[in-house]
Write a protein that binds this DNA or RNA. Structure first.
Ligand SMILES: [Mn+2]
Ligand SMILES: [Mn+2]
Ligand SMILES: [Mn+2]
Ligand SMILES: [Mn+2]
Lengths: 155, 155
DNA sequence: TTTAAAATATAGCAATGGCTATATTATTTA
DNA sequence: TAAATAATATAGCCATTGCTATATTTTAAA
């Protein structure tokens, strides 16, 4: 029976458990932000490529139905990430622009890193789409260092 | 207006869009499996450490409420990942054991990799908890190659 | 063997993220 | 301008993942 409770009295075990909880909690938090990040990043991409971000384009790029996008855009508007101009698509607020910039850079870094590691480009693209949302600032730093030294070692 | 539709007539653009959709689709699929993977991996860990995996322990490790675990275990049982023996915790089926083994190895590999990259151990632990679910077989291979050559270069 | 404690299950709620079918609203085009 | 087309919004459904409060069931103690 309660083996855990008995052994958890030492400082080490308690610490281990706390760290584990912290990991799962942080991951659950990241998971709640994934879609928001994908949306603002995609909206920024569409605007920079085509000058506008319409629901139909977002839906096609994401591979979801248009009402799904409609609902999410309402949430993004409520979160003050975007503004919806009637018949003119959506635009990023300052807050949305900042988040999009951060996400684009992080996404690009992760994908570049995977390719540098030898992952085929198409696979790197897919994996980066999921991985990006779980990469901390410390890991970003480590990746940047690796890419710099990796580039240097090839000179 | 419909800038995308006009430019999407070239083979390159269509291809780009398809790849993008594929990436998001694969990521959505991975996201649906994340929790199942975390559960079977944790159950395997608890059984190997304490000989049993009880709801209360799972709940504490994950940092969620017990009814949340109760519901998820029903789903895992319906998916034939576990069997629930009354008053004896849960046990992994062959299917669950196979998945757990795969997840443990992949999780461990990702965490080891992050540490090798220079990420502080505690941060690596947190990041790996989320990243692991989005790492393809090809990326696993690339990581293994890196760890081997990295280890060799330090000899 | 009752009683107390621990573990598990259920009920009922909410947020998120999907879907299809069907309006409604804008924009083009005839 | 009126009709057709395109874009967006709504309604209503479902599954998932969380929660609290409250049974119920098992196990352990008295
Ligand atoms: Mn991204
Ligand atoms: Mn993404
Ligand atoms: Mn794991
Ligand atoms: Mn995980």
């Amino acid at each position: 029976m309660s083996t855990l409770k008995k052994t958890a009295t030492t400082a080490e075990k308690v610490n281990e458990t706390d760290l584990q909880i912290h990991g799962f909690r942080q991951t659950r938090h990241n998971r709640r932000l994934e879609l928001v990040e994908d949306y603002v990043e995609l909206i920024a991409d569409l605007i920079s490529k085509h000058g506008e971000a319409r629901q139909v384009d977002i839906a096609r790029e994401l591979g979801v139905a248009q009402p799904t996008v409609s609902k999410m855009l309402k949430r993004l508007a409520a979160d003050e990430m975007i503004v919806q101009r009637p018949c003119r698509g959506v635009f990023l607020t300052d807050k949305g622009t900042k988040l999009a910039k951060h996400c684009r850079e992080r996404h690009s870094l992760v994908e570049t890193f995977l390719v540098a590691l030898g992952v085929p480009a198409e696979v790197a693209s897919i994996d980066a789409e999921g991985i990006e949302h779980h990469v901390s600032e410390q890991t970003i730093s480590a990746i940047k260092k690796f890419l710099n030294s990796d580039g240097a070692s090839k000179n």
